[in-house]
């Protein structure tokens, strides 16, 4: 195992960089962070649309979110892989394909997190804001979202953990994220597949476990200092 790490450690961590494109664990992290960052505004928009009083907005968005959530991510990746070149006219790289698929997929899941976060505040906050004469948008911006986003933070970190795991599907379209790199290493070494894949699993574990513990800690801290005062 030691020799494996010595020989292939750097390749595992950063792929062929700097002699080639970024790969490995670094690419996994980069892709996840970028995907989640871009998915957030989409998720916010979709989530708020699902809560809109206008049916013309609510229904199509709900249908979209439901459809994406009922489809395997791999399906979305394939649609992006085969559909994007048809739509944009030129062949997009694996990174772009995976990014688009992840942003659409995570956007739909974030929409639900946003929806639950806002509905969890209860009607009273919106009523109080509207009773003061604030418009629906002003109420969202000044009262609802500041509270909802704070409550959603642990769920957002958990979604980040999910996104990291989702990047593994890049393997199937040949993106050099960490699972693909691991299989490349396995092909070269050939005689130690169990060790290579255990190493892969362990790397994911360390990353995701640390993040989910962090989310847990955030949730705990949120519970101990409640921001909402409850009347008797």
């Amino acid at each position: 195992m030691r020799e494996l790490i010595d020989t292939y450690g750097v390749y595992f961590l950063v792929g062929q960089y700097p002699n080639g494109p970024l790969g490995g664990l670094a690419l996994t992290l980069l892709l996840s962070a970028l995907a989640l960052l871009l998915a957030l505004p989409l998720g916010l928009a979709l989530g708020l649309a699902r809560l809109s009083p206008w049916r013309a907005l609510r229904w199509p968005v709900s249908a979209f979110v439901f459809t994406v959530r009922a489809t395997p991510l791999l399906m979305v990746v394939f649609w992006a892989y085969f559909g994007l070149p048809a739509l944009t006219g030129y062949k997009s790289g694996q990174f772009a394909t995976m990014l688009v698929a992840l942003v659409v997929f995570d956007g739909a899941y974030l929409a639900e997190i946003v929806r639950a976060g806002v509905q969890g505040l209860g009607r009273g906050q919106m009523e109080a804001a509207r009773a003061l004469g604030l418009s629906h948008l002003q109420a969202l911006r000044s009262v609802i979202l500041p509270q909802a986003l704070r409550h959603m933070l642990p769920s957002l970190v958990n979604q980040f953990v999910s996104t990291i795991k989702e990047t593994s599907l890049g393997y199937i379209i040949g993106l050099s994220e960490v699972s693909f790199i691991a299989s490349q290493i396995n092909t070269q070494v050939f005689t130690k597949p169990a060790q290579v894949y255990l190493w892969l699993g362990f790397s994911y574990f360390v990353l995701c476990f640390a993040l989910s513990r962090f989310a847990y800690w955030m949730q705990d801290r949120g519970q101990r200092r409640p921001a909402t005062a409850t009347p008797a």
Binding site: G124, P146, A227, A229
Partner: peptide, 12 residues
């Protein structure tokens, strides 16, 4: 001006 039974102050 409207005052609610459950106060509904903005906690943040």
């Amino acid at each position: 001006g409207f005052v609610f039974q459950q106060f509904n102050l903005f906690p943040h």
